[in-house]
Amino acid sequence: MRKYLIILLTLSMMLPLVAQTITCSGSTTVLPIAQATAEAFMDKYPQINISVRGGGSGVGIAALQNGTVDIANSSRKIKSKEISAARARGIDPRGYAVANDGIVMIVHASNKLKELSSQQIRDIYTGKIKNWSQLGGENLPIVIISRDVASGTFEVFNEKALKNAKVDASAQMLASNNAVVSTVTNTPGAIGYAGLGYVNNDVKVLVVDGVMPSVTTVQEGSYPFSRKLYMYTNGKANGNIAGYIGFIQGPQGQKIVEDNGFIRLD
């Protein structure tokens, strides 16, 4: 009996040395935050392995419902329908905000326009307004710059600005925030959008619905194209999962959030 107790004790002492894996998938917007923070967390705790995948918020939440991931990354709040389906399967989704995000409207530096309404932005991107003169600007055709449909930034813009209307066929769909900023910088009639952290002084930032995008207006949610980014777990996060999420919400994780072009929680 004593022999078995010694073996059991030895095995239990070795448990912390065994590599533990945290799996997370979901939003492509949250993906760079998850990847960068996972790397930093694994550097700090080498015995923990974190596997990060994209796929979109809906995919991550469905995977959490199916019990195939520990964390669902989501660029939107979980829906009642998704919570209900999860609870029926014995999964209790709990959300943790990890960052703030704001989508900023930008135009060429020479553009005299200072402000647009959400409706005007929708009309531009759906092709109803084609010339800046229709908005009191110069007689110059509007060049629509957008992110590709697979990007999380497009997902937010599509939901918050376009209300899921179809982007005009003339739009240039670019693969990154940097590409959008660069194209708008070099194209006089261009309008584009990018994460707040990517915008520089070479482009002009527009006020939307009377609110200038800033760290403060995004953090307080008064800027119309702002949102929180979430990680969802099954029940209250504990163990290494709680450790990882706490790390992202802490000073080191929030620094990484800022470095990746997003806005810290506080």
Partner: peptide, 10 residues
């Protein structure tokens, strides 16, 4: 036996 799971685990 359920197989060929997609990224959602279905």
């Amino acid at each position: 036996y359920n197989f060929m799971h997609d990224e959602q685990g279905t």
